[in-house]
Amino acid sequence: MQETAGGYRGYRSFDYLEPHRDYKVFELAPEIGRVPEHDLGLTDGQQERVARLLREQMAISLHEHPKILPADVSQLRDYNRTGRNSFGFEGLARSGMTAVFDNFMNGTGCVTSEHAWKWDDVIYDIGLRFADVAKQDHVVVATTLEQIFEAKRNGQLALVAGLEAATMIENELDRIDILYGFGVRQMGIAYSQANMLGSGLSEDRDGGLTHFGRRAVDRMNKLGIAIDISHSGDQTSLDVIEASRVPVFITHAGARSVWNTPRMKPDEVIRACAERGGVIGIEAAPHTTLSADHPHHSIESVMDHFTYCVELVGIDHVAFGPDTNFGDHVGLHDSFTQHLAIGKAHGVVDHPRVPYVSGMENPAECFSNIVGWLVAHDYSDDEIAKVIGGNIIRVLQEVW
């Protein structure tokens, strides 16, 4: 069924095509109810406040992969090779979000190669997603702040196209312009492994931002593409913050002082980002934002990073980029460890493994639970409005 503006009407990915004939069909993971709901213990009054805040305020996820994984995650590589990832329209319609920074396949994109970050793969990925989105009316592609505001007024959800690295531009600076023309409005520097721009966080030695990387930062500034340093090495991150004329994002990470692995950011980088007006989005992908107080990864672990960052740099510089999808995210990591270079990036700190992150398992539940946690811990309406979207909007007003 076709969707209409202002409400989800049941569209599923590729409904405009004939299954099996026009595209290969995979059994998909459920968008809703794959794991038990997380009980925050809210009263009826607190639940009403959560609903009101999500209704009134702009809730923006700074980083997600809102695709639906195969039910059998061992089929993920074959699924990704088709270039067609089903999008979680139904789940997102229940999320309470105003906008989502969609980062597509990114490090798992293997349409034409065994390894990710090929130019053709990125174009396949973006084009097929946008074709799917164009066939319905609830999710709308946004390339300006006004389009995000309009989506909020219309009861729609805005999709902002993001890429976790600039690896696929190789040494072609004009490819940044091409990606901008295709709708990309946020892009990372390096994804764990080093590239022409700088070092990723899995490298033993971080050479910092290269000469070409400085030119790329300048081009992104001129175009109005928000820069992400989540997967960049520490020195490269500091160099990008210094080189950029506008604030940058750490779209999805946590604090290394809370959980000591390379995937988390040191205080020095978080402070430098905030001092230049930037924002850190708190991560929730499995086995990343753990804490000594909550080593079994859950929303409580995630919020330990949130509270630490708020104390470190102030509430004006913290947001959320949960980095979730619909399906077995732990299985995804297990399938793509070498491609993602996450084994080393996550470090060797011992911790209990969990099958999913309770309370932050998928894009449908993250923001209602985040707001619920903030309500339960007596944050004010103004404080909640800032961290669920307002801080991101402030940065985008400078960048875009």
Rank of each mutant, 00 (worst) to 15 (best):
H211E: 15
D206I: 10
M196K: 14
L209Y: 09
I229H: 08
L223V: 12
Y191L: 06
F249I: 00
S202R: 02
Q235L: 06
R215L: 11
S202A: 14
S230V: 12
I250N: 04
R214Y: 13
A216M: 09
I225F: 13
A226T: 05
N221K: 08
V248T: 12
R214M: 13
G224W: 02
G207Q: 05
A194F: 00
I229Y: 07
N195C: 08
L197Y: 05
N195K: 09
H211K: 15
F249L: 03
S202T: 12
G224A: 10
E203K: 05
A194C: 02
A194S: 05
I227A: 12
L209W: 09
N221R: 07
R205L: 10
H231K: 05
I229K: 05
N195P: 09
M220P: 04
I225Q: 06
K222Q: 15
G233T: 02
G233M: 05
Q193M: 14
F212Q: 03
I225N: 04
I225S: 04
L209I: 13
T236E: 00
G198C: 09
E242V: 14
H231Y: 02
G213Q: 03
S192D: 12
S230P: 08
S232D: 03
A243S: 13
I250F: 10
K222A: 15
L238R: 04
D206E: 13
S199A: 10
I229T: 08
H231Q: 07
R205S: 12
A226M: 13
F212C: 04
Q235Y: 02
T236A: 02
H231P: 01
E203W: 03
G200M: 02
A243L: 07
S199M: 02
D206L: 11
R215P: 01
G208H: 09
I241M: 09
D228C: 08
A216I: 00
R214P: 10
D234A: 10
A194T: 03
Y191Q: 03
G233R: 01
F249Q: 00
P247L: 06
D206Y: 10
L223T: 08
I225V: 13
S244T: 13
S202V: 10
F249N: 00
G208Y: 07
N221H: 09
E203R: 06
I227E: 07
I250Q: 04
S199R: 02
R215S: 12
N195I: 06
G207N: 07
S199I: 01
R214A: 15
V248A: 11
D234C: 07
G198Y: 03
K222W: 15
G224L: 07
D218E: 15
G224C: 11
P247Y: 08
D218H: 14
S202Y: 01
G208N: 11
D239E: 09
Q235S: 01
E203M: 13
N195R: 08
I250G: 05
T210Y: 14
I241V: 14
L197N: 01
V248L: 13
S244A: 15
D218K: 14
S232F: 01
G213I: 04
G224N: 08
A194W: 00
K222L: 15
L223F: 12
I241F: 09
S192N: 15
A243C: 11
S192Y: 13
F249D: 00
S237C: 11
L197F: 06
V217M: 04
L238H: 01
I225H: 07
H211L: 15
N221V: 02
D228K: 08
S232V: 06
G200Y: 00
L238F: 03
R219D: 07
A216W: 00
E203S: 10
R245A: 14
Y191H: 10
G224P: 06
P247W: 07
A243D: 08
